[in-house]
């Protein structure tokens, strides 16, 4: 089965969702990420959804689950780049995603993670830790 790639960048994991995910693919991402968090002891997860054209209740629930599970494992998850049209639609749908941290873009998300980890921010993406 098709899988969504998970990249490691230093102490963070980065997932860029570029396809319209069917339900099983979304669930597979949840499993794969949990696995990688445990294996890598990553301290933060960034999920870039800027290419995602819709978030319905199922995908919203999966994103919420990822945030909750990662928190239980001692890892912060930040969802970045949600399109404004999606935010408006989610509110009307009734999905608040209240337990999910969000940021406008990857840089802002990275900064948010650095701050919550209490580490100094060096800026930019460091692919070779």
């Amino acid at each position: 089965m098709e899988r969504i790639p998970i990249l490691q960048m230093g102490q963070f994991l980065l997932v860029t969702i570029q396809v319209d995910m069917h339900d099983r693919l979304a669930l597979a991402l949840q499993d794969d990420l949990t696995d990688r968090i445990v294996k890598t002891s990553a301290s933060g997860v960034l999920i870039d959804i800027s290419s995602l054209e819709i978030v319905d209740s199922f995908i919203g629930r999966v994103l919420g689950n990822i945030a909750t599970v990662s928190q239980l494992l001692g890892t912060e998850t930040v969802i970045v780049g949600m399109q404004p049209a999606i935010a408006i639609t989610l509110v009307e749908l009734g999905l608040s995603l209240s337990g999910v941290r969000t940021a406008a873009n990857i840089d802002a998300g990275m900064r948010l993670l650095q701050i919550s980890l209490g580490a100094p921010f060096h800026g930019g993406l460091d692919a070779n830790p």
């Binding site: 199922f58 408006i88 639609t89």
Partner: peptide
Amino acid sequence: GLVDQTKIVTAASEIAR
């Protein structure tokens, strides 16, 4: 418009599921 598109597509996804 984009917001309208997103609303219909999201509703369609919910009902289809």
